[in-house]
Design a protein around this nucleic acid. Sequence first.
DNA 1: GAGTGGTCTAGACCACGTT
DNA 2: ACGTGGTCTAGACCACTCT
Lengths: 229, 229
Amino acid sequence: MRVTYKEVKADILAKIVRGDWGPGELVPNEMDLTETYNCARATVNRAMRELADEGIIERRRKAGTRVRETRILQAKFDIPVLRNEIEALNAEYRYSLVSSSVENAPDWLRARLQLPKAADVLHLICMHYADGNPYQYEDRWINLDALPQAREIDFSKLGPNDWLMSEIPYSEAEISFSAALADKEMTEFLECAVGDPIFIVERSTWHAEQAMTYVRLSHKPGHRMTTRY
Amino acid sequence: MRVTYKEVKADILAKIVRGDWGPGELVPNEMDLTETYNCARATVNRAMRELADEGIIERRRKAGTRVRETRILQAKFDIPVLRNEIEALNAEYRYSLVSSSVENAPDWLRARLQLPKAADVLHLICMHYADGNPYQYEDRWINLDALPQAREIDFSKLGPNDWLMSEIPYSEAEISFSAALADKEMTEFLECAVGDPIFIVERSTWHAEQAMTYVRLSHKPGHRMTTRY
DNA sequence: GAGTGGTCTAGACCACGTT
DNA sequence: ACGTGGTCTAGACCACTCT
């Protein structure tokens, strides 16, 4: 049978795992491996390229390919649309708009999104429920200079995330995770106690060099975000 | 000049972003695109494959290629070795072993790592500092059935993570992020107040079907984990 | 059965970066 | 200067899966 890039990749990885090629060591070049595995260079290349993408090896022209000294740990999280996430738990999803107002962007938001002075933003507070239980508290700010049409949208039925995904399906974003304490207001919506630990996700979204939206998502106490690799 | 897969990829993405091909719509097949871009099929294939890897499009034999209905948001975090992370902040890294003891694995740990009854584990508490300030509190458990040589290691100089990376550089892992409150003991090490919100990272590591280690990392209040995409 | 993507081959040229 | 990886080509066969 013909040699597949997956076989080559698995064999190279096995050699690294076994320690045949230790950290920092030079891996044979593509032409040599072509003979080792008796296959075309493109096959070896794809195997090596994927290993490099996964952070197992490091490749440099002329210098060759080496096993990485320290494995870069990569954790990839798939962040599904909230409705799907909740329905995947066999729970019923419910959305509710708490408040909506046009405001002047506060300073901290202007700084974060690099907005001009006196920029108008749409400030939404929303709740997301799973089987009727509070799941996520959404504090959303939309840049009305960039998305003036947001003024006319009725967000009592359609969640801002769903609307934004339809307006700007592809965008640049910065995500960060952190921990915070539930404040007075949040305790009411999340049905928890003041001072409970809250897992926070923040996301700023950009499109065509312009800030579109910033959102701060506060999760019910005990929320975990998990991934395998 | 020759057409590169990057150009093809960028152009296809631009068409999707502009809405020429909307969510759920069929994208032309590879042979057609080969003519559109006047290049080899392998070039189109690589462009499309990468877009599929990034969750932009969905490909199925015979059925063709479609723009994804709902973009899967993927957040990829590079988790560097702590020393590197701290030194990247231009801070001096310092490590300290707080305690070390061989114990019988508590029930919650046995359940998590699927350990047999009466399994011995090495329990380490360590601190990591940046410029002398507490940065991370490490609560580490090592499965001594799988790694008996850990009994003989002096962890007062070498951090358990560094040692484990040298023993089992490649492994399966489960990572999770959550929020918790600082308890009495932690406040002393992290120099914070009881009830401060703490960002928690937990990681269970497996190798050859066997649990190697579980670690719970508690970060100083205010810690954030950030990524862009 | 037939259309589509998945992959391999053999050869070629080129860009980069080390020497 | 030259060795290595990065990429493109043109053609081929195959695997999957929809109809």
